[in-house]
């Protein structure tokens, strides 16, 4: 369980990045933080493992007040995959890169072997275990960054812009992995402004603008509110735009699969 109580955060240069944040995320939820650049999404994510401490208010993660805990102790429960995967890499091989955090958290060698092996298999990186992380492709690097975090099995996994620089197939793979991890009981929090990706995942959406939460609701409700999306400088998903244009046929704007919408059009035209 994650609780934000009246959280405000101001950077040392005076920029107020978060104001009046009140939020509750239950265990096993799939949540997306959406909003324009500078809305405060990454700042909010950094509060989860104590990288940033609130200027006022408090953040409680699994019963622990982040103001009184170290980043290392909070990170056992909260794994963050940052936007730039390469910021993590320094080891000569993929295997060593994944095992680094497990050593930091004090796991036994036998457990480390099992967990690294599982993470490599889960992220389909087995063939690259002895390769340098720097020689992987963009998509593989993102998967490695996620493997690094999933290897120590944190209860909460936060992903910062996971689709940046990813092609369509890689995005599909990412959706599959996120769903699987969520089904395993992990709380997943994604920060993104990729509306198509979020529309496919259909999570609970927290819409942010200028450091404030302006809407908290499910994908169908949030992504079909065009004025709200415009306020956050987000383009509605293609299916929502299509159904909006089809309003003259009596079709309401909604998130749907292209096949379903095609069938609905045929039914209405008959």
């Amino acid at each position: 369980m994650i609780i934000f109580e009246n959280v405000e955060y101001t950077y040392p240069n005076g920029f107020k990045a978060l104001s009046s944040i009140n939020l509750e995320i239950k265990d096993g939820e799939l949540v997306a933080l959406m909003g324009e650049n500078g809305a405060g999404k990454t700042t909010l994510l950094k509060h989860l493992n104590g990288l940033l401490k609130p200027s006022s208010g408090r953040v409680i993660v699994n019963g622990v007040d982040t103001r009184h805990a170290t980043v290392a102790s909070l990170s056992r429960d909260v794994g963050i995959v940052f936007q730039n995967a390469e910021d993590m890499f320094f080891s000569p091989t993929v295997w060593e890169e994944i095992s680094f955090a497990l050593h930091n958290f004090g796991y036994q060698e036998e457990v480390i072997k099992k967990r690294v092996g599982w993470a490599l298999k889960f992220m389909e990186l087995e063939d690259y275990r002895d390769k340098s992380p720097f020689l992987l492709s963009g998509g593989e690097k993102k998967r490695l960054a996620l493997a690094i975090v999933l290897a120590w099995s944190p209860k909460i996994v936060a992903l910062d812009e996971p689709t940046v620089g990813q092609d369509v197939l890689q995005k599909e793979k990412m959706i599959q992995i996120i769903r699987q991890a969520n089904q395993q009981g992990k709380t997943i929090i994604i920060s993104s402004h990729d509306v198509e990706f979020i529309a496919d995942l259909q999570p609970r959406i927290i819409l942010m603008s200028k450091g404030k939460i302006i809407k908290d609701g499910y994908a169908e409700e949030v992504l079909t509110d065009l004025s709200l999306l415009k306020e956050c400088r987000l383009i509605p998903p293609q299916m929502v735009s299509l159904t909006y244009e089809l309003g003259f046929l009596g079709i309401k704007p909604h998130l749907g699969q292209p096949e379903d919408i095609a069938l609905e059009i045929i039914r209405r035209l008959r």
Binding site: N49, L51, A72, N84, F100, F105
Partner: peptide
């Protein structure tokens, strides 16, 4: 700025 984001990444992996 890059240095700070690298430190954040590694601290999130349990580096003290």
């Amino acid at each position: 700025e890059e240095l700070q984001s690298i430190i954040d990444s590694q601290k999130s992996r349990g580096l003290e």
